[in-house]
Simulated assay, not measured.
Amino acid sequence: CTGAPLDAGLKRRIQQHWPGGLREIYGLTEGGCSCVLDADAFPDKLGTVGKPAPNHDMRLIDEAGRVVPPGEPGEIVGRSPYMMAGYYKRPEATEAFYWHDETGAVFHRSGDIGRFDADGFLILLDRKKDMIISGGFNIYAADLEVILAAHPDVLEATVIGVPSAQWGETPLALVVPTAASTIGADALLQWANAQVGRTQRLSAVEYRRELPRSALGKVLKRELRQAYWP
């Protein structure tokens, strides 16, 4: 059980070193959204979390609560036979967690941004609260983190939005280099930005000795952002 998606490289290493098969399940404690990936049956889909589980209805919606066109990213919402009745004595939080379709059916909001590929497999892009809006463009931190993590001198990396007088918000990479790293922060910035579109470029790379994590191992992005936002 993890608090964040497994990247495709880690899934491959698990398949190589662990006996048996690998099955990844994405879902919410509250129920409603669940996907299953049989990694051995679909080795070309390791960058996804699989397809919706049986009897699960999952959709993607935009900021206005409208279902997005096929192939477009949106917040993941879902319903299933297994859904909580509500948060205990928190009616406002319960209502905010719900999304209703045109028939009035209740779906649970995941808070995750995703996209379905052409075969119906779900690709997780980012947490909605971690999405960076820079100059009117949506930037998914997870996309940039995958690129940074692929560099051999990077042990781990996270990307957060920081204030920008020009763009309102801009992506900043916080990187823990490997012990044998020889690349400087500026060189890593140039390397990463050469692989993304103009609107996705990082504004800077800062090196850290470590990244703060929760008891479940999640990087505490809110704590990192506090140092930059007034």
Rank of each mutant, 00 (worst) to 15 (best):
F121H: 06
D57F: 07
A179I: 05
A93P: 00
I61C: 04
D7W: 09
V49E: 01
G104Q: 01
M58A: 13
L148Y: 10
M58R: 04
I113A: 02
L224P: 12
S80H: 11
K218S: 11
R90A: 13
A149E: 12
L60I: 03
R208N: 09
L144Y: 03
A105I: 08
A180K: 15
G197T: 04
K221R: 15
L122Q: 00
P91C: 02
H17L: 11
H108V: 15
Y87A: 07
F116K: 06
F137V: 15
Y140D: 05
E156F: 07
R23W: 06
Q15D: 07
G32P: 11
L155K: 15
G120A: 00
A179K: 07
E169I: 06
E156S: 09
E223K: 15
G21H: 14
V49Q: 05
V159D: 03
V219M: 05
A180E: 14
S34W: 06
E156I: 12
S34R: 13
E102H: 11
L188V: 12
A180P: 03
Q15R: 14
K129M: 07
T103E: 13
K11A: 13
K221H: 12
Q200K: 15
F121T: 02
L37E: 03
L124T: 06
G9A: 06
A39I: 11
E72P: 01
A227I: 10
Y98I: 11
A93V: 10
A64N: 13
D186N: 06
K129D: 08
D112A: 00
N55L: 11
A39N: 07
D40T: 10
R209G: 15
G111Q: 02
D7I: 07
L124R: 05
P73G: 01
V77F: 03
G50V: 09
G114N: 02
D62I: 02
A215V: 15
R13W: 06
Q166V: 14
S110P: 06
L172N: 00
D117A: 03
S164Q: 03
G120T: 12
A96K: 14
P152Q: 02
E169M: 02
S110F: 08
D143L: 06
D153A: 14
A39E: 09
P171V: 12
Y228G: 06
R79A: 10
A39F: 08
D40C: 10
A105Q: 15
A150E: 13
S203G: 12
D186P: 00
F42E: 11
R59N: 09
V154Q: 09
N55V: 07
F42A: 13
H17G: 05
L155M: 10
L220C: 08
L144F: 04
V68G: 00
F121L: 05
E210F: 13
E63Y: 02
L46A: 10
P73S: 01
V36E: 07
Q16V: 04
K218F: 08
I133Y: 05
A192V: 04
G31F: 08
E223T: 15
V146Q: 12
L46E: 11
G161D: 01
P171E: 01
M131H: 05
G135K: 11
P212F: 07
C35K: 04
V68F: 00
A141R: 09
I113R: 00
V49W: 03
A149I: 04
V67N: 01
E169F: 01
R109G: 05
T182M: 04
A85I: 10
A187G: 01
G27V: 13
C1W: 11
N55M: 10
S203E: 12
H17M: 06
